[in-house]
Design a protein around this nucleic acid. Structure first.
Lengths: 194, 194
DNA sequence: TTATGCATGTAAAGGGTTACATGATTTT
DNA sequence: AAAATCATGTAACCCTTTACATGCATAA
């Protein structure tokens, strides 16, 4: 059910087409939420049916049109209600920890290779998160900038600070993963090499 | 697909019934993986059909029997293959970060209440994780103890160290969440109270 | 004898992934 | 003229959740 709130959140910045949203979801927004096209378009239709969004037909090229989605008052009220509802704790289901607990079943070389892949992945994540964080701080992030234009300075300050706060959480998480991976290499050295 | 490997992992410790597994999944094992009864029993049947497990009928009470599942050689080979296969990075989809990025849409009082709930949840998680970690270190953890009985000291050392390593990752994660939550309270104080 | 625990599921619905499908528009 | 981008989906499958269903065994 969170997909629909991720969509409303995005659309509070500016009206977008399904395609725009899809692109956002494969770029910086994907740090906070991800969904493929095939999930986005049907959900937008359901949300319009439920009155959370309205679509406006906008000309595209010579003959075509595209649908730009706007958040309705109902949609915004729904979003606020969700924002204030208690957060259901996520169940642990990360294969990385499951695998780590049973590393003794795998060849140490294969384990090292996996740790290297994980390290590369999280280093890249961290780099992107820090890059996006910087664009939030200097207010150059496109979606954020669009939203800030509609707000006064006090409101803009809040919007920016909370987004930076969310990114700080993601960055801390990435750094924790990297530290754990480094510990993994050290453990392998201790258990197998010496 | 990881559920089946979580099940094999558990069953390498000792043969179990679906009920035993279900109980493990709602106790300490849930830190690493979680699944409800309704997912476990059908999956065990599919795994037996696929030759990864065999079930042995064991008497239970006067008339009844229960099915104890054992990992087959095929199952173990499959598990090892999975252990050495590359880890697919998990897509980010945690509502906590999504919400945090839009805290300006919610009433500060409601936000504080959510942070309190999150803090309580993670404090409890941390307490449980540290408790379980201790039972791994002193080898009193029941499932681990059962497995260690079948291993020599060198193998036992590896099994224990990797499990502790996995828990260290989970503990670091919980601490990172708690630090982030504390930062959230500080941010609210700064933005709304002074 | 009543409550708790042990044992094993089915059914329906929701959410997510992967693959496929199609056509217009803009850029090179 | 070809390639990249914009635009909008459908279909099938898989995994997970929630709710329901049933009955025996053992301990208080």
């Amino acid at each position: 059910m969170s997909l629909r709130y991720a969509l409303i959140a995005l659309l509070t910045g500016r009206p977008m087409t399904g395609y725009d949203i899809s692109k956002s979801f494969s770029r910086s927004v994907s740090h906070v939420w991800h969904a493929p096209d095939s999930q986005i378009y049907p959900e937008l239709n359901r949300m319009e049916r439920d009155g959370l969004l309205i679509s406006v037909e906008v000309p595209w090229g010579k003959k075509g049109t595209k649908k730009e989605y706007h958040v309705t008052d109902t949609g915004l009220a729904d979003f606020r209600a969700w924002m204030e509802s208690p957060l259901v704790p996520q169940r642990q289901r990360d294969p990385a920890y499951l695998k780590a607990a049973y590393f003794d079943f795998a060849d140490p070389k294969a384990v090292r290779e996996q740790l290297r892949q994980q390290r590369t992945y999280w280093e890249e994540q961290l780099r992107m998160l820090e890059g996006t964080r910087a664009t939030l701080v200097d207010r150059s992030h496109p979606t954020l900038a669009a939203r800030l234009a509609k707000l006064d300075e006090r409101e803009a300050e809040l919007a920016v600070r909370f987004k930076v706060y969310a990114y700080d959480g993601l960055i801390a998480h990435a750094r924790t993963e990297l530290a754990w991976i480094a510990d993994g290499f050290a453990l392998l050295d201790e258990l197998y090499d010496s």
